[in-house]
Design a protein around this nucleic acid. Structure first.
Length: 667
DNA sequence: TAGAGGTTACTTTTT
DNA sequence: GTAACCTCTA
């Protein structure tokens, strides 16, 4: 703790008041949290009574690593460092009975949610149009994030939202029938539980006697409720946040929660961290000037002692192919010239699809790279299949899992049968699996179809039973053989290589599950717990033991928050990309500006912007304009390289013109 | 019932 | 340009 600056020290030692730390980018906020955990333990609060909550798995991982350097194993025992969602899942699993859930709660991912909504709509949900399914899904999520229950949504909904509110009611009932919850429920249900059962709340308050929250500006209404409930009236918490880095409004984040704390906790202490330990003065100057265009609830001014540094460069390219090639070759040359490492470079972008050409370019030049947050391991169809079976063994009422696996591999149970089964189950408000055995169904289906369903049902129950009784993993390996999954992959895949790769993934999944089961509990951890938990994990956790090697990082701006790199390339800095087209249309530029701010402040030594004058979009070549954000930056600190397609003044004028144009269009 | 072939909407960001 | 979705035929 010797090397902390006075503000950081004050933040670590402030344990008698609820504490809000306003921490600018690169001001050492993770350090404050980890040091504070160590400090609390050394002050005599056992680690099992401390919980630190973050938003991403990556941040939680980082925090754990750093705490482990400050405390020995004994001192850390029982410490909770997890994402909000993972904490919610722990609470739900522990209290499932009170909430009316059976053991073996299933977690639905976005795709499962989509499938369920689709089924509800096609089975006649009131006034719902299948074409609007995405907007219903989003609306339901927004209600959950804003702590609006289905009943309240019916009352509150505007006329246009009424179908979604009805669907929300049906959806909630179905989830309950399937003994399932979705991501948003992991926060919403614990809050409801705590509100309705003070004794349970007290139990958890006693467990978690000090709460630390990272990236507090990203909390939504429901998450804030959870924080308040756990922290209690005494306000035993430290939250750390930066309103300039709020980039999750689209999923309900309320940066106003920062100001709300002052209203809710009169004794709240506020400490600002303004010294930046990451970037050059010039990078900070540019970032500060950009973000000055946004309104601010809290004033803060970042400064650095790391020297003024190089100008930030702006590259212009003919199209996105040249952009990728040019930047890849810049990285090669720069690394050669400076004798640095590949891991010193990061390529950051607005949308995942932008990584493609860069991947190709890096691969062709044999440059090691790592893409974070792209297709997750769990998005692979073979992984979803096997997990689907496991989910069904754990919880037969999991309709999403049932639908996933019922005819994979083929069991001659096709759409017609499933349609009738679905209609029947829907009518009765029971799960598909439960419907399989019903007499009423046999009137609507052929005997053959009934037999096939019964066979699958018996097999599932039998396998689930054997998992319960004994050697979980022997049963799992056996069932994969038994259903002929390997053969199925051979038939389904276009090439033998693809089939082999998929099979390898399947075995990797099984090995991974074994490792998780072994951890802490010597293989005794129930499959139900593993299956639920696994849905919240990300690809990095799978590769935990792979050593970090020297590779260029590629990721979205969202994924980059909290990280830092010596050399940062911000690509596709164009109108309609950053700011994103949808944000322009909804006049929501401020969050996009914060996103750009987050990107710039990742850079330690150099920061390079890049835009294209032409780009393929939906297969058509379209003209592109440099982002308006470039025109908001101090000219003296920018160096425009390549052919300047547009002078900065022109961009500025155009930016103003397009803004004015937009405003007239909207008014 | 399965699979081929045609059509369409889409690309924001995550647990 | 493409993935997911839908319709038609064997």
């Amino acid at each position: 703790m010797s090397k902390l600056n006075p503000q950081q020290q004050a933040a670590v030692k402030a344990i008698d008041h609820p504490l809000l730390v306003l921490a600018g980018a690169g001001s050492g906020k993770t350090r404050v949290i980890t040091e504070k955990i160590a400090y609390l333990v050394k002050q005599g609060l056992p680690a099992r009574h401390i919980a630190a909550v973050t938003f991403t798995n990556k941040a939680a991982r980082e925090m754990k690593t750093r705490v482990s350097k400050l405390l020995d194993n004994n001192q850390q025992r029982g410490l909770r460092v997890s994402t909000f969602h993972s904490l919610g899942l722990d609470i739900l699993r522990a209290e499932s009975k009170t909430l009316g859930y059976k053991a073996g709660i299933t977690l639905f991912d976005e795709q499962d949610k989509h499938t369920l909504l689709r089924n509800l709509i096609s089975h006649g949900a009131k006034d719902c149009d299948i074409d609007n399914i995405d907007s219903y899904a989003r609306q339901i999520g927004q209600w959950k994030n804003a702590f609006v229950t289905p009943e309240q949504s019916i009352t509150l909904a505007a006329a246009t939202e009424y179908p979604a509110a009805n669907l929300y009611v049906d959806y909630t009932r179905s989830l309950k029938a399937y003994n399932a919850v979705d991501f948003d429920d992991l926060i919403l249900l614990p809050v409801l539980l705590f509100q309705q059962h003070p004794a349970i709340l007290e139990k958890w308050q006693n467990k978690i006697r000090y709460l630390l929250v990272d990236e507090y500006q990203d909390t939504n209404i429901t998450q804030y409720q959870l924080v308040r409930l756990i922290a209690g009236n005494l306000g035993r918490f430290t939250v750390v946040g930066d309103d300039d880095q709020s980039i999750y409004a689209w999923r309900g984040a309320q940066p106003e929660n920062l100001a709300q704390l002052q209203k809710d906790y009169a004794r709240l202490q506020v400490i600002k961290l303004e010294q930046n330990y990451r970037s050059t003065g010039r990078i900070l100057k540019v970032a500060n000037q950009l973000i000055a265009n946004n309104p601010h609830a809290f004033e803060k001014r970042l400064w650095s002692e790391l020297g003024y540094g190089d100008a930030l460069r702006v590259l212009s390219h003919k199209d996105e192919l040249i952009e990728a090639q040019q930047i890849v070759s810049e990285i090669i040359h720069h690394k050669f010239k400076t004798g640095g490492n590949y891991q010193d470079y990061a390529i950051l972008y607005r949308g995942n699809h932008q990584s493609r050409l860069f991947e190709k370019g890096l691969r062709e030049n044999n440059i090691p790279y790592f893409i974070s947050g792209s297709t997750s391991f769990f998005a692979y169809s073979e992984i979803k299949d096997i997990l689907g079976y496991l989910r069904l063994f754990v919880n037969q009422d999991d309709d999403a899992a049932f639908l996933r696996v019922i005819n994979t591999p083929k069991r001659e149970i096709g759409p017609t049968t499933l349609e009738k089964l679905g209609a029947y189950a829907n009518e009765r408000h029971i799960s598909l699996f439960a419907a399989c055995t019903e007499f009423g169904l046999s009137q609507k289906l052929s005997e053959k179809a009934m037999q096939r369903l019964a066979k699958f049902r018996d097999w599932t129950l039998d396998t689930a039973d054997r998992i319960d009784r004994g050697d979980t993993f022997a049963v799992i390996e056996h069932f994969i053989d038994q259903i002929g999954y390997s053969q199925y992959l051979q038939e389904e895949s276009k090439t033998k290589e693809a089939a082999d790769r998929k099979l390898k993934n399947v075995y990797e999944l099984v090995e991974w599950l074994k490792r998780i089961a072994d951890k802490e509990t010597d293989g005794q951890k129930p499959l139900a717990e593993i299956v639920a938990k696994i849905m919240l994990m990300d690809i990095m956790e799978r590769n935990q033991e792979d050593e970090i090697s020297d590779q260029v990082s590629l990721m979205t701006l969202h994924a980059a928050k909290g990280l830092e790199f010596p050399h940062v390339f911000l690509i596709g800095i164009e109108e309609n990309i950053l700011p994103h087209q949808n944000s322009i249309e909804t006049d929501n530029i401020e969050e996009e500006r914060r996103l750009a701010y987050v990107g710039i402040t990742r850079a330690q030594r150099t920061c390079t912007f890049s835009y294209c004058t032409h780009r393929r979009r939906y297969g058509e070549i379209a003209e592109c304009e440099p982002s308006r954000f470039l025109s908001e930056l101090p000219e003296d600190d920018l160096e425009w390289v390549n052919k300047k397609q547009l002078a900065p003044e022109v961009i500025k004028e155009r930016g103003k013109a397009s803004l004015a144009h937009l405003k007239t269009m909207l008014s």
